[in-house]
C-alpha cells in the first residue's frame, strides 16, 4: 500500500477529484438552495445536461470558455422556469415535472447534437490553468490544489457567499422558512411563491454552470447523455449536506475523488475494469446512505406545493 501514497498518485487523485467534483459542487449547491426553499428538484440532471450542451455551443461559437459558462448558466435558468411555472406557481407534482424535464432535456440535446454535428465531436481548446503564486510551489498539494482553472476558485467563493446568505441574511432566513414552515413565512408577509421562484432559478443557473463546466472544462466536448447521472449524485450530496453549502463542497470532493480514483490508480500501475470505475461513485453513495440512513435531514415542506389557506 505504501507506493499508493506517492506524490504522483495523490496529486492525480486530488486534482482529478477537483476536476470531477466542481460540476457536482455547482449542481449540489443549486439543489441545496432549492431544497431549503421546499422544492425537490428531480430535474437537476436535465438542467445540467442542457447547460452542458448550450455551454458547449457558446464556447464553441465564441472560443471563450467564460461565454460558454455564462450561456450554460442562462440555459439552466431557462429550464428551471418550467419548474417555476408548473410546480411553484401552479403547484403540480414536482417529481413528475422533474422526470419530464430529464426526458425532454435528454431527447432534445441528443436530437440537436445529432442535427448540428452528426457523428462528429468537435473539441474545445483546453482552458487556462491559474496557478496561485507561492502556494502552487508546495510539494504534493501545491500542484493539485493551487493550479486549477479559474472557475474552481470562483466556485469556492460562491459557496462562501451562499453560506453567508443562508446564515446571516433575511433572504436566507426567508429561504429556509419557505422550506420548513411556508405558512409562517406567508403569515409574516413574505411571498412563498416569490422566494421559491428565486431559489429554483438560482438552482437552475448553478446546475447549468455545473453542466457547462463538465463539457467545456472537463470533457472539452459534448456527447449525448454527457452528464451520465451526475445530477442524481448532486441531489444525494445536497441531501447529505443537510442544507449546509460547505457540506456540498465536502461531498462533491469525496465523490469527485471516487470518480477519478481509477485514473490515479492507473498512474501507479493498477488497472481496474471500467465498469467497476463507473459504478464506484454510485456504490459510495449507497454506502453513505445506508450508513447514515438516519442522518439525512430534509426540510419539512420539501416537495409539497404551497397552497395558501390549506392545512
Amino acid at each position: 500500500m505504501s507506493d499508493l501514497l506517492t506524490p504522483t498518485f495523490l496529486t492525480a487523485l486530488i486534482a482529478g477529484g477537483i476536476l470531477a467534483g466542481i460540476p457536482l459542487l455547482f449542481a449540489s449547491l443549486g439543489e441545496t438552495i432549492a431544497e431549503q426553499s421546499g422544492i425537490l428538484n428531480v430535474g437537476l440532471e436535465g438542467m445540467m445536461l442542457t447547460g452542458a450542451f448550450c455551454g458547449f455551443l457558446g464556447a464553441l461559437a465564441t472560443g471563450n470558455a467564460w461565454v460558454g459558462l455564462t450561456v450554460g448558466a442562462i440555459s439552466g435558468l431557462l429550464v428551471s422556469l418550467v419548474m417555476v411555472v408548473f410546480c411553484v406557481r401552479l403547484g403540480l407534482d414536482q417529481i413528475v415535472v422533474g422526470i419530464s424535464i430529464i426526458l425532454c432535456a435528454e431527447g432534445l440535446t441528443s436530437l440537436l447534437h445529432g442535427a448540428f454535428f452528426g457523428q462528429s465531436y468537435p473539441r474545445l481548446d483546453a482552458i487556462d490553468v491559474f496557478a496561485i503564486p507561492v502556494l502552487s510551489q508546495i510539494p504534493v498539494l501545491g500542484g493539485s490544489l493551487f493550479s486549477q482553472p479559474a472557475p474552481v476558485y470562483m466556485a469556492l467563493i460562491v459557496v462562501g457567499l451562499v453560506g453567508w446568505i443562508f446564515r446571516r441574511t433575511t433572504a436566507g432566513l426567508d429561504l429556509r422558512a419557505a422550506g420548513e414552515r411556508p405558512d409562517s413565512l406567508d403569515a409574516a408577509g413574505v411571498s412563498v411563491v416569490r422566494v421559491r421562484t428565486v431559489a429554483e432559478m438560482a438552482c437552475g443557473a448553478f446546475a447549468g454552470i455545473g453542466g457547462a463546466y463538465m463539457s467545456i472544462v472537463g470533457a472539452g466536448t459534448f456527447v449525448p447523455f454527457l452528464t451520465g447521472g451526475m445530477g442524481f449524485i448532486a441531489i444525494v450530496i445536497a441531501m447529505m449536506g443537510r442544507g449546509h453549502p460547505w457540506g456540498a463542497v465536502l461531498g462533491a470532493l469525496l465523490f469527485g475523488m471516487s470518480l477519478s480514483i481509477a485514473t490515479a490508480l492507473q498512474l501507479v500501475g493498477i488497472s481496474i475494469p471500467v465498469d467497476v470505475v463507473q459504478m464506484l461513485p454510485f456504490v459510495s453513495v449507497m454506502v453513505v446512505l445506508v450508513v447514515f440512513a438516519r442522518e439525512a435531514r430534509l426540510p419539512a415542506a420539501l416537495g409539497l406545493p404551497y397552497v395558501r389557506g390549506s392545512r
Binding site: I99, I101, I102, L103, C104, L111, P224
Partner: peptide, 20 residues
C-alpha cells in the same frame, strides 16, 4: 438522419402536457 433519442423528447413532452 437524426438520433433515435427523439422518442425521449416525445414522451417527456407528453408527460408535461399531461400534467398541464
Amino acid at each position: 438522419g437524426l438520433p433515435s433519442d427523439f422518442l425521449l423528447l416525445v414522451v417527456g413532452l407528453i408527460l408535461i402536457f399531461m400534467v398541464a
